[in-house]
Design a binder for these strands. Structure first.
Length: 812
DNA sequence: AGCACGCCGACT
DNA sequence: GTCGGCGTGCTC
């Protein structure tokens, strides 16, 4: 008798054992999807982790309900990698599985209700009668339908009565939700395919003008290429309606047939590889020779040094081995430009994978990757692409490796794509190239210590100089009354010069902590969110106040709810306000704005970026998303509205982040000729700001590394953050304290907290955080094991039942 | 995670 | 009296 360990896509800590029937015995291997009964009535899709012959002793294993796959959907390497993620980031395999598999591959059962075939007359009450009635109209009902019919939430007791009386029966059904896209094609019946056929047809159709046109168009298309002719294409070319084609099909002239088509398609015009400059060539050679004895290389290339071209040539080399390449980018917005560039060189060999893709599109990419198909030789994707079923990867490129977005924050698995990529590469025997203009302190440290190889590209492409950075002292400007709103006279002058010369401008306003709030001028009251400990922010567009944490919104109040005064004002400034002030200062300028509010929807980013690229807008105002590797040729001026709000965040990475952000935003300026950057700040003498001005990454690195060592932060200490949440304040406080105490007692290392985070309540949940600092000499594994044990005993405390704890390893 | 079961207060 | 609230326990 055989048994299978099944991973269920739930956040349960272990796998479950099921029995494999005789018939399935030979068919099932690890990595296949199966449907299993779980709990009283549910069916779930699970993944076979392994197969063995040891019957469980404490319970009777249930049977696998159905085998969904003929061959594995998930590879052995993938399972090993997922196991690493689960262990390292302290989450369950189920959670990794859930975020890896496109939901179309994860079926869940739905209960449906139908009339029992041989039900007789019975006494029915009103509710039972309504259900029986509905089932006579419609043979199947979902539980949700019944909820709607009866207009109440608890319908199961009613259903159970009906079932007991033999009137209805319940079925659990799983249905495949992936449907390949079918395209309808037309072809002539073979007897008309000859020359004579055309003449014969025209005779037959002499009274049907439209149909004749369709036939002529068909022969015309046929002559152009041997490709199948899609019905829609033919209708369009002939300028006839589908009805005409249908008529031809009815006469037995045309026949329709269907072919499966990939939804994701790119043009296949291959171009010659880009020409590299001497510096780029040198970097490429260094990377390649570095790979001879290092698995990971870090490419530190200043902004606009042409890192992408180097990646492309490197990818080309690796593709020659016949093995696929994975190209990770931090954000979807970056893929559009990049996909364009890569398809120009690699044509149809490029696939894209990210969360804005539809379910069906994701399944297609998954399958192409699994089959190592030609289309998936170069896979570009955000974080989650790392979890695809690669066979024999040769190279992983991690672009903008310093980006915090590579670390998944909320649901588990809270993994870092850069670090997980290095582990994945090891499993595949592949190489990793990390690239950035401003590498993460951790990565640069690894490069300096020899763990990674380091290649530097310090020249910009075409020898353009790095932009000239000028600081504007806001304190002084305010004192001398040289400010118009948030714009200093210096910035205004440079903007108007740039506009006069037909050049474009980018203005950067960091949103974090700086969104506008409403304040009462009489009593100083600021409206707060009722469910979170934050002020509501003012959104001009919809004229309402909104909470960024829970989405709560109210219409803009006309008077203060505290003192009824009507003197209200907005305080703080966000991108909207910058845009507004800009419009007043430069009424002629065309202004675009890019932030979370304007980039919703699938093509939100593209519209704004394209408009700016095509010079339909002159000035682009935006948040950090502007810092992420977008290339615009005509930008000569970049303005950072206020550098200080980034610097003073209670986060050990605040200075590193500020440097990276300012350096990256500055890099948008002057890609074809030397540009200018204006940084407005109250702290022009601040070390970090001085380092930005001097383009001094090394200086920033040295200073931050020193600080990290002093204050016990990465890369010298590993961090694990525990976040504790509960609706009840006192229970939260007590449980967090309990947890911290036990941790301190059991770990010989610094344990900080519990501390209230900056936003200490979200959606009525109170929050406390505990930080564990693990020194390099302590064993990570042993520490994690201890933490896991303590968390288990925490969960066993009855009064802490409702308290939720999340674990974040390597917090970012 | 989901879901059933069971115990309690709030209504027809 | 039922309905629906949530605390508790379990799922191979």
């Amino acid at each position: 008798m055989h048994f299978a360990e099944i991973i269920l896509p739930l956040s349960l800590p272990k796998t479950f054992t099921y029995r494999i029937s005789e018939a399935d015995g030979f068919l099932i291997v690890a990595g296949m999807r199966v449907v299993v009964p779980f709990g009283r009535q549910k069916l779930y899709t699970g993944l076979v982790a392994n197969i063995h012959e040891n019957p469980p002793t404490l319970y009777e294993a249930r049977d696998i309900h159905q085998v969904l796959d003929e061959k594995p959907t998930v590879t052995e390497t993938q399972l090993a990698h997922w196991q690493w993620i689960a262990d390292y980031y302290m989450c369950s395999l189920g959670e990794v599985c859930r975020s890896a598999l496109p939901s179309a591959l994860l079926l869940e059962s739905e209960t449906s209700v139908s009339l029992h075939p041989d039900f007789g007359a019975a006494e029915l009450n009103d509710e039972e009668y309504m259900i029986a009635e509905a089932l006579q109209q419609q043979s199947m009902l979902k539980v949700q339908d019944i909820v709607n019919i009866l207009g109440k939430k608890t319908v199961l007791p009613v259903l159970r009565r009906l079932m007991a009386n033999g009137i209805v029966r319940l079925q659990e059904e799983v249905s495949e939700s992936y449907r390949p896209k079918l395209v309808r094609y037309v072809r002539l019946f073979p007897e008309f395919e000859s020359r004579d056929g055309l003449q014969e047809l025209l005779d037959i159709l002499k009274n049907a003008e439209k149909q004749k046109e369709a036939i002529l168009a068909y022969f015309q298309l046929r002559a152009q290429s041997r490709k199948p002719i899609a019905a829609s294409l033919l209708a369009e070319t002939a300028n006839v309606t589908p009805a005409a084609l249908k008529a031809l099909a009815d006469k037995g002239i045309f026949e329709f047939y269907h072919l499966q088509q990939d939804r994701v398609q790119f043009s296949d015009e291959d171009q010659d590889m880009p020409e590299l400059s001497a510096a780029q060539n040198h970097a490429l050679a260094e990377i390649r020779s570095g790979f001879e004895n290092k698995a990971v290389m870090l490419l530190h290339g200043v902004t606009a040094s042409g890192k992408t071209e180097v990646y492309i040539r490197l990818i080309e080399k690796f593709l020659e081995t016949g093995k696929p390449v994975l190209y990770l980018v931090p954000e979807i917005a970056l893929t559009t430009q990049l996909v364009g560039r890569l398809t120009r060189y690699f044509g149809n060999r490029v696939s894209v994978y990210h969360s804005k893709y539809s379910n069906n599109e994701r399944v297609e990419v998954w399958e192409n990757v699994l089959e190592a198909s030609e289309k998936a030789q170069v896979v570009i994707g955000a974080r989650s692409a790392l979890l695809l079923p690669f066979c024999d990867l040769s190279l992983i490129v991690v672009d903008e490796e310093h980006e915090p977005l590579f670390k998944q924050q909320d649901p588990a698995p809270r993994y870092h794509a850069r670090d997980a990529a290095i582990v994945l590469a090891k499993l595949h025997g592949a190489k990793v190239l990390l690239g950035s203009a401003t590498p993460a302190i951790e990565s640069y440290h690894n490069a300096q210590s020899g763990k990674y190889g380091l290649v530097t590209l310090s020249q910009r492409y075409a020898d353009v100089q790095l932009p000239e950075i000028e600081l504007v002292d806001l304190k002084d400007k305010h004192f001398r009354k040289r400010m118009t709103g948030h714009f200093s006279d210096t910035l205004t002058e440079y903007i108007s010069t740039a506009l006069q010369q037909g050049e474009q401008v980018i203005l950067f306003q960091n949103r974090r902590g700086f969104a506008p709030v409403l304040e009462c001028l009489t009593c100083g009251h600021v409206p707060q969110c009722t469910q979170c400990d934050v002020s509501l922010t003012f959104h001009k567009g919809k004229n309402q106040l909104r909470c960024h944490y829970c989405g709560f919104s109210v219409p803009m109040p006309t008077h203060c709810h505290h003192c009824h005064s009507v003197d209200l004002t907005t305080k703080g400034f966000g991108t909207e306000q910058v845009e507004l002030e800009l419009q007043q200062l430069f009424p002629q300028a065309r202004i675009g704005r890019m932030d979370q509010d304007t980039t919703r929807g699938k093509f939100g980013y593209e519209k704004i970026i394209d408009a700016f690229k095509n010079h339909e807008t002159d000035i682009l105002v935006g948040t950090q998303m502007l810092a992420k590797g977008l290339d615009f040729d005509n930008v000569s001026l970049v303005g950072i509205m206020n550098a200080d709000n980034m610097l003073y965040h209670p986060d050990f990475r605040a200075f590193e982040r500020s440097f990276q952000m300012m350096a990256q935003v500055s890099g948008r300026s002057g890609r074809s000729k030397r540009g200018r950057v204006i940084i407005q700040t109250y702290n022009p003498m601040h070390n970090t700001i001085q380092q930005v001005t001097r383009h001094d990454y090394e200086g920033m690195f040295a200073e931050q590394l020193y600080e990290r060592r002093n204050y016990r932060y990465p890369p010298f200490y590993k961090l694990i953050r525990l976040t504790v949440r509960d609706r009840d304040f006192e229970r939260l406080r007590d449980s967090a304290q309990w947890l911290a105490n036990v941790l301190v007692q059991n770990l010989s290392m610094p344990v900080l907290g519990p501390e209230a985070p900056p936003v200490a309540r979200i959606r009525n949940q109170y929050i406390r955080e505990i930080l564990i600092k693990i020194p390099a000499e302590a064993s990570l594994q042993v520490t994690k094991k201890t933490v896991r044990k303590i968390l288990d005993s925490f969960e066993a405390v009855a009064q802490f039942r409702s308290v939720k704890v999340t674990v974040n390893v390597d917090v970012y």
